[in-house]
Amino acid sequence: MSDFWAALRAHTPARIGQQRFGEAPGTRERLEFVTAHAAARDAVHEPLDVSALVADLASIPGLAAPVVVASAAPDRATYLTRPDLGRRLRDPLPSAEPGADLVVVLADGLSATAVQRHAHGVLRALRPLLPGTRWAPPVIATQARVALGDHVAAAWRARMALVLVGERPGLTTADSLGAYLTWAPHPGTPDSARNCVSNIHPPHGLDHETAARTIASLVHGARQLRATGIALKEGRLELG
C-alpha cells in the first residue's frame, strides 16, 4: 500500500494516503502534524531581514535602491490583531518622482520567509517582461498588509501597485508568496479590484518565472482595460 501512495506523492505535497488505526492516522503521522504546526506558528513570528533583502534587490539590473518603510503596527502581536494598522504607513513616505507606471511593494505579511526567498526572484524575472514600464523605487514594508500598497501608490501617484506579500504559513509550506496587482490604487480600494497570483513557492508552488509571466500578462491586461479585479481575467485578453 505504501508504494501506491509514494508514487502519487510526487504529484502533490498533500498528506494523502495516511494510515488508519480505527479512524485515526498513525502515531508518526500524528507527531509530524504536531511538529509542522509548531513550525508554522514560529514562521508567523520570523522577522524580515531587511538588509539581506536590500542586498538581493541591488543585484537586479536597473532596479532603483529600495525605500524601507514600516506600517503603523509597532510589533507582530499588534499586527495580528490590528489589520487597520498593518494597512497604513507609520511615517510619511519620502518623496519620489511622481507618475510611475508601477510601484512594487515587498511586504512581509504573515511570512517574512516567503518575501526573503522569492520576492527578488520574481522581480528579476519580471523586469525584462515589462519593457517601457516606468518603475518607481521598490518599497520594502514591515508589519505590512496588502492594502499598504494603496497608500504608497497614492502618495507617489503610481498607476499600478504590485504587492509581493508573505502568505499565511501552512503546515507544508511556510514560504508561500502572493502577488497582488491593483490599478489606480487608493486607500479604501476593495479587494475585488485586485488580481492575485498566489502560491509562489518553488518547487511545490509556482516558480518565479511562471509567476512573473502571469503577473506581466495581468499588467498588460490592466493597461488595456484600465482596471484590475474581477473585470480582468488572466488569459482572456490574449485570446481577443
Binding site: P13, A14, G17, G170, S176
Partner: peptide, 15 residues
Amino acid sequence: VPGSDDVMLGYQSTS
C-alpha cells in the same frame, strides 16, 4: 482534506 492540511490555502480543516 487529506491529513487536515490544505496545502494550497495554508490552513487546517477537518480531514
